[in-house]
Write a protein that binds this DNA or RNA. Structure first.
Length: 602
RNA sequence: CGGGCUAUGGCGUAGUUUGGUAACGCGCUGCACUGGGGGUGCAGAGAUCGUAGGUUCAAAUCCUGCUAGCCCGACCA
């Protein structure tokens, strides 16, 4: 370190500080936001009482985000910095696929949604409003319609394939926003859309995105895997969800511990052992079951039957139509499967009054035997079963000896049941596990639904015309930021991967005396020149406060500059992830940090 | 949408049962000491107790409506 007169140096430093500290464009050597003393990062010792998920608590405590109201968060400077780094990684990977970045509006006319039919099918999830003329508009929940309408200007197969995307705010009126950034009503999403001339092209575009998404999660420090999923309201025939295990998630995923089978519980199945029944009587027999209202009670009732020999009849209302859904007594209905199988948008259990009106009995005594005035959907697991027990549609009366093929006028067979933990894997027979997960990305093969609706077609080499085959691919920026936080923290706070940390390194000044300030500023200049995103902690605070804050907000590397080390010409180099601290020569410190950052990013 | 819980300075809480005019910790401001893991002392600032109404001499406290937030569930007939 150069030796100068202390007074002279002090005045130089003060002059530089004064300029740098000006929030009005003072041209100091440091950006004001690079000085912690000027950075708006309100860290809290305690998380708000209503935060539960670790990422929620830590993002609040670290001063990354603040809630405005349910499902709407303000991004504070640190949070926005992370958010932008996440977005940049996503952008980088989609650009690498040849993706072209757009920016489409987020307020849409009702017409475009009516054209696709989703104005009605999207229901309450869509924020709808009227403009001053009374025209119906909506805030965009996704952009298939808008991109497809733009794609109608594509005219020749020679232009394909195309991958288009934008990173734009979506609005979704979620029934239940929760867990901080994990489920919100207003969020940035990267949604990309592929346009191909045929299915083979779509498959290729889909595979490209599959690879890009896996690289994205890798770079975000999120352990991710793909699962078979229900396409839900998006339409299309094939989709893969990307999941990361977390208690803060909202999806249950079936995973095999042996083979690579994994599926959303809304889609997955298992291999049930076959059941053999006695043939039973020639016709169902009614018998009185006073007070028996549940599967369990019927199991215990003298003359009843075990749950796997009962037919459970659920009265559901599908888009207004009362429908009987029959599953095995010990099985659970998955309503998403029911929705997917029937195409019904609104699926709900019937009210008791509706049930009584439809079948003449109360829940607990219901059955589908001989019912012809309501559609009956039966779970695949009940195929061929005989000698079963079920309600007789008279309170306190059941049937035994029911054969489903003979006695129940089934209109549709489908896989409706929800897989239970421990059931055998459909591929290899190993016991399945169920893991709680956060859905961090979803990619869909859409087909031609939207291109047909919006007239997006291209001429073919043969001189004909063919609708463009589309795919759509979504990844929520804020949710992935939170998912990374869920995967990377300890009892001290966040441990961001270097790739998305708000700063890659922090220089912590133990004292604000001349030597420390000068050494810190020099390190800052060297690191900045080397392209490292660095923060200078120049606050007049105790060491413990500075260390605790740096650890809370999860900066990967820390240089500690204090008189103790400076006497030996050394500073301390600390790694957040491991807690490891080593002394390095002051002159070599910047290089050491640069190397660590480079190594982590490569 | 159903159920449960909650709302008191920036954050965390007490006070509500039994009405009497708002307290504590952290944070913030000033001063002093201190100075390598959230330090100490002194002195301060900061709350119409979510909101509207009601009961009462008197309401954070009791009653009613509304609003907002959090959690669980939305299938076990």
């Amino acid at each position: 370190m150069q030796q100068r007169g202390p007074d002279a140096k002090l005045s130089v430093v003060r002059a530089s500080l004064g300029k740098a500290l000006s929030p009005h464009g003072g041209r100091g050597t440091l950006q004001p936001t690079m000085r912690w003393s000027k950075l708006f990062t309100p860290t809290l010792r305690d998380a708000p009482n209503d935060a539960v998920a670790p990422s929620h608590k830590l993002l609040i405590r670290g001063g990354f985000i603040r809630q405005l109201h349910a499902g709407h968060y303000s991004m504070l400077p640190l949070g926005w910095k992370v958010h932008q780094k996440v977005a940049d990684i996503v952008r980088d990977e989609i650009n690498a696929l040849g993706g072209q970045e757009f920016l489409l509006p987020t307020m849409h006319p009702a017409d475009i949604w009516k054209t696709s039919g989703r104005w009605d099918t999207m229901g309450d999830i869509m924020f709808r409003l009227e403009d001053r003329k009374g025209a119906e508009t909506a805030l965009g929940i996704t952009h298939e319609e808008i991109f497809a309408s733009v794609a109608s200007e594509l005219s020749s197969y020679k232009q394909l394939p195309q991958i288009w995307y934008h990173i734009q705010i979506k609005f979704r009126d979620e029934a239940r926003p929760k867990s901080g950034l994990l489920r919100v009503r207003e969020f940035h999403m990267k949604d990309s859309y592929s346009f191909d001339v045929d299915e083979a092209g779509l498959d290729a575009s889909f595979e490209l995105h599959d690879g890009a998404y896996r690289r994205i999660f890798e770079r975000l420090g999120i352990p991710a895997f793909g699962v078979e999923a229900s396409s839900g309201a998006m339409g299309g025939n094939d989709s893969v969800e990307f999941m990361t295990p977390s208690d803060a998630g909202e999806d249950d995923v079936i995973r095999c511990t042996n083979c690579d089978y994994s599926a959303n519980i809304e889609k997955g199945t298992s291999a049930l052992p076959a059941m053999t029944d006695e043939p039973g009587p020639d016709a169902p027999e009614r018998f009185d079951t006073p007070g028996v209202r549940t599967i369990k009670a019927l199991e215990e009732f003298d003359g009843g039957a075990p749950a796997d020999r009962q037919l459970k009849t659920l009265v559901m209302v599908l888009d207004g139509t009362v429908t009987l859904v029959v599953v095995r007594g010990d099985h659970q209905l998955n309503t998403q499967k029911l929705s997917d199988v029937t195409g019904a948008i609104e699926v709900r259990p019937a009210e008791v009054a509706e049930t009584v009106a439809a079948l003449g009995a109360h829940p607990g005594s219901l059955g589908a035997v001989g019912v012809t005035d309501h559609p009956i959907i039966m779970d695949e697991a009940l195929r061929g079963r005989t000698n079963m027990t079920t309600g007789a549609n008279t309170d306190d009366v059941h049937y035994r000896g029911v054969s489903v093929d003979r006695d129940v006028p089934v209109g549709q067979w489908a896989d409706l049941r929800e897989v239970q933990e421990g059931e055998p894997c459909p591929n290899c027979g190993t016991a399945l596990t169920i893991v709680r997960c956060i859905e961090i990305g979803h990619i869909f093969k859409l087909g031609t639904t939207y291109s047909k609706a919006f007239g997006a077609s291209v001429s073919t080499p043969e001189g004909g015309e063919t609708p463009i085959v589309m795919g759509s691919y979504g990844i929520g920026i804020g949710r992935n930021m939170a998912a990374s936080a869920e995967a990377n923290y300890d009892d001290k706070g966040l441990i961001w991967p270097v790739s998305i940390a708000p700063y890659e390194a922090v220089i912590t000044l133990m004292r604000l005396d001349d030597d420390c300030v000068a050494a810190g500023e020099k390190l800052y200049q060297d690191l900045t020149a080397a392209g490292v995103d660095v923060l200078l902690d120049d606050r007049d605070a105790r060491a413990g406060v500075k260390f605790a804050d740096a650890e809370l907000i999860g900066i990967p590397f820390r240089l500690t500059v204090g008189p103790r080390g400076l006497k030996e010409g050394k500073v301390e180099f600390n790694r957040r992830a491991t807690g490891e601290t080593v002394e390095v020569e002051l002159d070599a410190a910047a290089a050491a940090v640069w190397e660590a950052v480079s190594a982590a990013k490569s």
